[in-house]
Nucleic acid binder design. Structure first.
Lengths: 194, 194
DNA sequence: ACCTGAACACCGTTCAAGT
DNA sequence: ACCTGAACACCGTTCAAGT
């Protein structure tokens, strides 16, 4: 990449991070280009679609979630590991307000720039879920696809301002549906019994 | 209302019903006016906001849900009544793709044209939920606001094309979190035990 | 190679001017 | 009273013309 192109690329990415944080994943791309002091077509060549831009923003987050999952697999009970990872995934997804609908669509569209990231998240979740299944801590009739969809629904709930005060509670409700207390013997349950 | 105004009003409403069914609650209002053969400003005077238009479309549905709830209160066990009503509410909300975010916002904005409808749905749900609470069939730490938010999340899930095949399953998962089988003695449980 | 401005076809919202 | 077209300030996307 030529030096000036590189500079534009980096500038676009850093401006996009701010704009998306403020206006969500459906922020105006024109606005991003304008604030980056760059022609609109320049943004389009670096990031041919909105998904491509979001993907570039999300890449480091997905890597982090992957690393966390690896840690959790060795440091926690299967049930706790899954819940902790879900909480982190929902939190990060929520930072990109409105991105969950893009995610769920991308999972079925290998052409999407978000496809790889979505598959990665889907697979990590499935792996943690299967561990919980093996330990008899997760509801048996839920698979990785269900889990991915529930993460989307939870992130969507966090995205709604009026839900925010009860969002953590709803996280507990939904995650306890995936991991019923009756099947669990981990820290969360210990706390409830204490 | 003058005869020509009445005619325009009715025509706008019927066209809006089709357009919203096809493109969702964020359909182009310009498109509605165009297809109704009416000036754009005419639409705006009859329906000063998008919420006002959606509210007009939704009014009969809300009335129907209210009637159903009244029936269910006399014809079913509290747990069954709540689940059946939830299913119907999610189904109808889903017909207006994308309306759930408007709903959750309207519940906190008395100025919104959707406010009355949202409060009505919220209150009906709370009433059915409290019956289930009294019968010991519903999870105690869930209130009407939680229920309203969960209905929104479920309708959002039904709105995502990639989730559709598993949406009914996720409905069961989430509704069983609200009404755990351990607390229920109704038809759904009987079926599962059979 | 890379960038830009303008063009095109859309929005939502408002308002002066018509009947 | 009611309606309309045009105006304004926005989009996303594409492309010919510049350096």
């Amino acid at each position: 990449m030529r030096a000036d192109a590189r500079k534009n690329y980096d500038r676009l990415l850093s401006v996009a991070r701010e704009v998306v944080a403020e206006y969500g994943a459906d922020a105006s791309l024109r606005d991003v280009a304008r604030k980056a002091g760059v022609g609109l077509a320049t943004l389009y060549r670096h990031f041919p679609t909105r998904e491509a831009l979001i993907e570039a923003l999300l890449r480091s987050d997905v890597d982090e979630l992957r690393a966390r999952a690896a840690d959790l697999e060795t440091s926690s009970t299967p049930g706790d590991a899954l819940v902790t990872w879900l909480r982190g995934t929902v939190a990060i997804t929520h930072e990109y307000r409105g991105v969950t609908a893009l995610f769920l669509a991308a999972l079925e569209d290998p052409e999407s720039a978000l496809y790889e990231s979505c598959v990665a998240l889907h697979d990590i979740g499935t792996r943690l879920l299967d561990r919980a299944h093996a330990a008899g801590q997760a509801r048996a009739d839920i698979d990785g696809g269900d889990l991915f969809a529930l993460v989307g629904a939870l992130a969507w709930l966090y995205d709604q301002p009026s839900v925010k005060p009860r969002a953590d509670h709803l996280f507990d409700v939904i995650s306890s549906a995936v991991l019923p207390d009756g099947l669990r013997t981990d820290a969360q349950l210990q706390r409830r019994l204490a």
